[in-house]
């Protein structure tokens, strides 16, 4: 087991810098999920930890040892790849045993370790099969088994569930979480799926365009997003953003007036963020009224689409509320659920 420390990690291809100085300390046994849209540099970051990409600048340390110039095989890490990267000509057993064999682990110990991993992952009956004879979920488990048998200091996961169908993905997500809790191995997990990120992570690293915009526990990231990007990326349906101007006693968004939790200098241009689930139906004292342009009744929830001050606005109401398109919907938002960002920089105020 080990902690992982990233200090001002940068990556350039030629003159183009794609990772702009990431800092992150991952504690021993922690499960950190790096989440972001495709092309944000999250996979590159993970591959730098693995040693598959050179570190242009900065430092990565695993268990207190700087690994910048250490080969992947000597970093004591194991990796689960997006397409699993199983060796097609080797049996499940051989796939799992290969890393140990190369390291010269005695045969009897290899067998014991593979068997133990196979038991955990319910792969026992499949050990003699070839990867092509397995289902997607089974291949995924073999890829994990290959990581587990090595008993490494750090697990690295590169979008391991993205090739599975939706149902299997939920199931494997739970398995991964349980496994990591049982083994207690430090893990770094890369995904573009924010639900996966929220459910798996002890801590999230939200990346955008090569920058770690926010690092923190999922709930904290959800409740106090530091930037417009993070606020929009985490949460589904995504947060509503409304252009607003600070006034003496709150914020004005077009016709609507909000009370704000903090005082801002009047006249300042800001962006107000409000999550769809924080808008409530309140016919008595509404903060704003929107005309329902489209209503999606999902059963548990009813999603109302409207427009406020030229910006699209979504409200997620309980499924019990009957709203039809064309209704004028009176809505309220508690001041503590308003997120105010600087209009220019997008940073939280």
């Amino acid at each position: 087991m080990a902690d992982v420390r990233l200090r001002n990690v940068r990556k350039s291809y030629g003159d183009t810098e794609v990772i702009h100085g990431v800092d992150c300390e991952i504690a021993d046994g922690e499960f950190v999920v790096v989440v972001g849209p495709s092309g944000c540099g999250k996979s590159t970051l993970l591959r730098m930890v693995a040693g598959l990409e050179e570190i242009t600048k900065g430092e990565i340390a695993i268990g207190g040892r700087v690994v910048n110039d250490i080969e992947p095989k000597d970093r004591d890490i194991a990796m689960v790849f997006q397409n699993y990267a199983l060796y097609p000509h080797m049996s499940v057993f051989d796939n799992m045993a290969y890393g140990l064999k190369i390291r010269g682990v005695p045969r009897s110990e290899i067998e014991a370790r593979v068997e133990k991993a196979a038991n955990i992952l319910q792969l026992k009956p499949l050990l003699e099969r070839k990867p092509r004879q397995l289902s997607g979920g089974q291949r995924q488990r073999v890829a994990m088994g290959r990581a587990i048998v090595r008993d490494p200091q750090v697990f690295l996961f590169d979008e391991p569930l993205s090739n599975l169908d939706a149902k299997l993905r939920v199931q494997m997500r739970v398995e991964i979480k349980r496994l990591q809790q049982d083994l207690g191995t430090t893990s770094i997990y890369v995904t573009h799926d924010q639900v996966e990120a929220m459910t798996l992570a002890d801590r999230l690293v939200v990346m955008n365009a090569g920058v770690a915009e926010q690092v923190g526990p999922p709930i904290e990231v959800y409740e106090r997003p530091e930037t417009v990007f993070v606020a929009g990326f985490i949460g589904s349906p995504a947060m509503n953003f409304l252009p607003a101007i600070a006034t003496e006693n709150g914020l004005s968004v077009g016709e609507a007036r909000f009370r704000a939790a903090q005082r801002l200098e009047p006249g300042r241009n800001v962006t107000v963020g409000v999550r769809p689930e924080h808008l409530e139906l309140d016919p008595a004292s509404p903060t704003l009224r929107v005309r329902a342009e489209l209503v999606e009744a999902l059963g548990a929830d009813t999603i109302v689409h409207g427009t406020l001050a030229g910006a699209p606005l979504l409200a997620r109401l309980p499924g019990t509320q009957r709203v039809v398109a064309g209704d004028e919907v009176p809505l309220r938002c508690a001041p503590e659920h308003l997120h105010v960002f600087d209009g220019a920089t997008g940073k939280r105020i």
């Binding site: 693995a50 598959l52 992947p72 194991a78 790849f81 990267a85 190369i102 390291r103 290959r146």
Partner: peptide, 29 residues
């Protein structure tokens, strides 16, 4: 041969000749 297969081999600790012997050669049969 997918890039990730090469990377998996690197993480497993296989150098170029080992990768050739254990993966590339059998796949080229």
């Amino acid at each position: 041969i997918p890039d990730e297969m090469v990377e998996a081999a690197k993480v497993d600790g296989a150098g170029p000749m080992r990768f050739f012997k254990d993966v590339v050669l059998p796949l080229s049969r």
